[in-house]
């Protein structure tokens, strides 16, 4: 029995097809302006690669911003629940999930059984989200992936006055003009992001094990800085790409539903 999950985010859209608790195929694409277009495209791509057809999918759960507008899903579940569920599948011992998405970041606490106990998301602007890093990387003329690697090479990270996207952007430009080594600026950007995230994570109370999901989990600079801020070790996700955690969670909910459970 095949099930699928689709997670339409502000920057990227993800689809996962699962069978018997295993991932058959997963795809990540850049999101389009309209959520339903992203959903169609990413799902069709995943199906094609898996050699399946829509009717082969017993159940599909949608999540993310545009989830209510996706026509082909059977059920919509909030991305907070999906990220919690997905993280649990990726790291079974996890109790605290920190997810940094394109436009928001969240911290989720799970109980011993993996049920969501508490969550918090950022209220405000792009500070502390993937968009923040994207903007900064662009200013520095770097690929988003390079930003993380840079931190490791930094000897003297720059301290940024603000984690506000607008202010920090001005500061980054200033530092570039002052010919500060780019790795020190990159490390500073990652630090600023981590400090913002640490406030959020601390406010729900951390419990071990902690893991990170979302695209930013692939940025080691941020993950290392966050470990320092929180004073704990963050378990690295190796089983799958942490960016698809939400889609995995959605697929797991679909599996539950298909097996007769209530979400």
């Amino acid at each position: 029995m095949f099930v699928s999950g689709v997670d339409v985010g502000s920057l990227t859209s993800k689809a996962v097809i699962m069978k018997d608790d295993r991932i058959v195929k997963s795809v990540i694409i850049k999101s389009k302006a309209r959520p339903w277009e992203s959903a169609d495209e990413v799902m069709d791509m995943a199906l094609a690669r898996a050699g399946l057809d829509r009717k082969d999918i017993k159940n599909c759960v949608g999540t993310g911003y545009g989830r209510d507008k996706i026509s082909f899903i059977d059920e919509a579940v909030s991305e907070i629940a999906c990220h919690g569920r997905g993280a649990r599948w990726l790291v079974p011992s996890v109790r605290t999930v920190i997810d940094i998405g394109g436009q928001d970041c969240k911290a989720i606490r799970l109980d011993a059984k993996g049920d969501m106990m508490k969550f918090i998301t950022n209220d405000k602007c792009a500070s502390g989200t993937g968009r923040f890093l994207e903007v900064m990387a662009k200013v520095m003329n770097l690929d988003l992936d390079e930003l993380g690697e840079m931190s490791a090479r930094s000897k003297q990270p720059v301290t940024f006055a603000s984690a506000c996207t607008v202010w920090a952007q001005a500061d980054v430009i200033q530092q570039l003009n002052d010919k500060v080594p780019i790795e020190d600026i990159a490390a500073g950007v990652n630090n600023a992001m981590a400090s913002r995230m640490a406030i959020l994570a601390n406010s729900i109370g951390l419990e071990n094990d902690v893991c990170m999901t979302g695209g930013v989990a692939k940025n080691n600079g941020v993950v290392n800085a966050l470990e320092k801020h929180l004073g704990i070790r963050i378990k690295r996700i190796r089983r799958e790409d942490p960016q698809i955690a939400g889609a995995i969670g959605a697929a797991l909910f679909a599996m539950e539903k298909a097996s007769g459970g209530v979400i």
């Binding site: 940024f160 006055a161 603000s162 984690a163 202010w167 500061d171």
Partner: peptide, 8 residues
């Protein structure tokens, strides 16, 4: 000073 650096 994180709101606006002294230099600014």
């Amino acid at each position: 000073a994180r709101v606006q650096s002294w230099e600014a």
